[in-house]
Simulated assay, not measured.
Amino acid sequence: MLPGTAGDRPRTDVPPPGSGGSRTEAPPGSGGTRRMRADARRNRQVLLDAAVEAFAEHGADTPLDGIAKRAGVANATLYRHFPTREALLEEVLRERIGQLVEGERTLLSREGPADALAVWLREFVAYTKTYQGLPASVLATLRGDPGSPLHGSCATLLGVAARLLERAQRAGQMRCDVDAVDLLTQATGIAWATERGPRDATRSDRLLTVLMDGLRATSDRTGTPPR
């Protein structure tokens, strides 16, 4: 989890994550199904739009109070919808995460096992570099923070990485003494080390190539492929 900033004050008047945020109403004939009020949906979207702009300008550790101000809503409104920075980040990045999941299907049908893994890893690194400071948050979650709102997204991406890696291992193309956590930890480390400066885009690709070369199976390190 990213370190807190002066703009991130603990809240005691907000519902727990997943509680739906703002007060809701049950539509007629819904059988108890609840939906967000129109004004709450509007506030939520305004906050998301403001967060996209703020994260792009100032990075993933921009003060949350500043996002609320940019959106023109009270701080309490932001915290009702997004109790933590990671919850807001996850929602902002939801579409990008979906693209990474969908990318697995495309790669499995078009690329060889090792090449598919390499292409997907480059997309993953690009994802973690969407906003300055995001790689640090992803790394913290990969190290085992089940309480982080990013945990679900990271678990999904770990599943994709595991399937692509195991496919390449079964084909005898990747060494078998690494797992998906090892893989994404190294890839996120590359993203963290190269997230600043225009020259780092080339460096990132070069380091990923070195990583993939080190993962390729050789006669002395093939190991036992996953079943």
Rank of each mutant, 00 (worst) to 15 (best):
2 L>E: 11
3 P>V: 09
4 G>M: 13
4 G>C: 08
5 T>Y: 03
5 T>F: 06
5 T>Q: 03
6 A>P: 00
8 D>T: 05
9 R>P: 02
10 P>M: 14
12 T>W: 12
14 V>E: 10
15 P>A: 15
15 P>V: 10
15 P>H: 10
17 P>T: 08
19 S>P: 01
21 G>H: 03
21 G>M: 06
21 G>D: 02
22 S>G: 12
22 S>C: 12
25 E>A: 08
25 E>M: 09
26 A>L: 05
28 P>E: 15
31 G>N: 09
32 G>N: 09
32 G>C: 07
34 R>N: 04
34 R>L: 15
34 R>D: 02
35 R>N: 01
37 R>K: 13
38 A>S: 11
39 D>K: 08
39 D>R: 15
39 D>C: 03
39 D>I: 01
39 D>W: 06
40 A>E: 13
41 R>G: 02
42 R>K: 05
44 R>S: 07
46 V>T: 03
47 L>D: 04
50 A>N: 02
53 E>R: 12
57 E>P: 00
58 H>Y: 14
59 G>C: 06
61 D>N: 12
64 L>T: 02
66 G>V: 00
67 I>E: 02
68 A>D: 04
68 A>L: 04
69 K>P: 00
71 A>S: 03
72 G>K: 03
75 N>T: 08
75 N>W: 12
76 A>K: 13
76 A>V: 11
77 T>V: 15
78 L>N: 07
80 R>P: 00
82 F>Q: 01
87 A>H: 06
87 A>Y: 09
89 L>A: 05
90 E>F: 02
91 E>Q: 11
92 V>E: 02
94 R>V: 05
95 E>R: 14
95 E>V: 06
96 R>C: 01
97 I>F: 04
102 E>W: 06
106 T>H: 14
108 L>V: 12
112 G>K: 11
113 P>I: 13
114 A>E: 15
114 A>L: 14
115 D>I: 07
115 D>Y: 11
118 A>K: 09
125 V>K: 01
126 A>M: 01
130 T>P: 00
132 Q>H: 10
134 L>P: 00
135 P>Q: 11
136 A>R: 08
137 S>M: 12
139 L>A: 15
141 T>W: 12
142 L>E: 05
142 L>T: 00
143 R>S: 13
146 P>N: 14
147 G>K: 08
150 L>G: 01
150 L>T: 00
152 G>F: 09
152 G>L: 15
154 C>Q: 14
154 C>T: 06
154 C>G: 01
155 A>Y: 12
157 L>E: 01
159 G>H: 06
159 G>W: 10
165 L>W: 13
166 E>K: 04
167 R>H: 14
167 R>V: 11
169 Q>G: 06
169 Q>C: 11
171 A>G: 12
178 V>N: 01
179 D>R: 01
181 V>H: 14
185 T>L: 11
191 A>V: 04
192 W>Y: 15
192 W>M: 09
192 W>L: 15
193 A>M: 12
194 T>R: 01
196 R>A: 10
196 R>D: 10
200 D>N: 13
204 S>G: 02
206 R>L: 12
209 T>Y: 05
210 V>Y: 05
211 L>F: 10
211 L>D: 06
212 M>D: 07
214 G>C: 05
216 R>G: 03
220 D>S: 07
220 D>C: 00
221 R>G: 13
222 T>I: 13
222 T>F: 05
223 G>V: 08
227 R>Y: 07
227 R>S: 04
227 R>W: 08
227 R>Q: 04
